[in-house]
């Protein structure tokens, strides 16, 4: 029995009436917009409530909405249930009991949201990546440091106003191509 996004939103709205800001059930990526302050409580509810049981956090994506001053963090969740009957149905696959995307809108200049790494351990690395590439800070994360770029990298590359580096530890990076003039703003 698979829950629709509207039903999931209904359950959330009953429990957290102030947290649910917007429900977008009909688009190609149906989801629910949640207030950043209540996100951690909502996440705990999504995982632990037996009707929802969103046990798989598929992906955390950060989207820069420049020139609007916002960054959207999108959490894609999935509920996997084991097959109900045992014995004869031993070869039945697990079923998908619901798919939803939760969106949290953060201001670009101070992008802070509570970490959910204590709820879904997979979020640990996803949040480190969002911090590294987009500059979103996850409060309460056990080890928030860069994961893909080197530790002494400057800037957050996936931001729309990112300036491409011209060199790194003596190795030239500027190539004289369009990316440099678009990104660096410095001429050589």
């Amino acid at each position: 029995m698979s829950l629709t996004v509207q039903e999931i939103a209904g359950l959330l709205q009953t429990r957290f009436p102030d947290a649910v800001l917007e429900v977008d059930a009909d688009s190609r990526h149906p989801g629910i917009r949640v207030a950043p302050e209540s996100w951690h409580d909502v996440a705990l509810f999504l995982r632990d409530d037996p009707r929802l049981a969103m046990n798989l956090l598929r992906c955390i994506s950060a989207v820069d909405l420049h020139p609007q001053p916002y960054i959207d963090v999108v959490y894609d969740l999935l509920s996997m249930r084991p097959p109900v009957s045992t014995g004869g149905g031993a070869a039945d696959p697990w079923s998908c009991a619901g798919l939803v995307a939760i969106r949290v809108r953060l201001p670009r200049e101070r992008a802070h949201v509570r970490s959910v790494a204590d709820i879904w351990p997979t979020a640990n690395w996803h949040e480190r990546e969002a911090f590294d590439l987009m500059g979103v800070t996850f409060d309460g994360h056990p080890d928030l440091r860069r994961i893909l770029c080197p530790d002494d990298w400057v800037g957050h590359p996936l931001r729309k106003d990112y300036v491409f580096p011209t060199e790194y530890h003596g190795i030239p990076a500027a190539t004289g191509s369009a990316a440099d003039s678009a990104g660096t703003g410095e001429e050589h």
Binding site: N55, L56, R58, A91, P93, W94, W120, P121, T122
Partner: peptide
Amino acid sequence: AIAYGLTGPCLRGSGVRWDLRRCV
């Protein structure tokens, strides 16, 4: 496996019969 977001043969090796081609 599910908590750490494992999917594919790693998840199936742990006894979870989940494959997107059948489940979604």
